[in-house]
Amino acid sequence: MTAVTDTPDPDAQPANGKPAPDAHPVDDTPGPDAHPVDDAPDPDAHPVNGLDDVVHQRVRLGILTIAHEARQVEFGYLRTQLELTAGNLSKHLGVLEAAGLVEVEKGYAGRRPRTWITLTAPGRTALAQEIERLKLLITRVETTPAEK
């Protein structure tokens, strides 16, 4: 396993050069052990409390989703699907890798360098929990009566 070494793009813009409507600066990178994989969400706690910053961010949630469906995904595919620059994608991958949610592997297809991203077991769990919490959040919002 190797780290992604593409130069991070400080402006973190999508590949088309326009800022994404909700393009966020990347969070501080947590250490390798900083990402706790929680138990199943507590049904009594408000779902927002359980949301994980690392996973909840839109781009990173997209990376985890694609990696989950594909089993293994190439850097270029992620960049195209998520409409990100290489630098921005690298930064998000760095966050996920540091949290132990994905593994990044560099190799070659012929002479062309390829970077493959694989979801780890904690990554699968974190994605499942995030989706569960999002559903809970939607249910909570829909069932809570509006205050007068």
Binding site: H24, L51, Q57, K135
Partner: peptide, 13 residues
């Protein structure tokens, strides 16, 4: 503060 308030759960799902 950057991720949760802007991340509409319906849109994310």
């Amino acid at each position: 503060t950057e991720s949760v308030p802007t991340g509409d759960p319906r849109r994310l799902l």
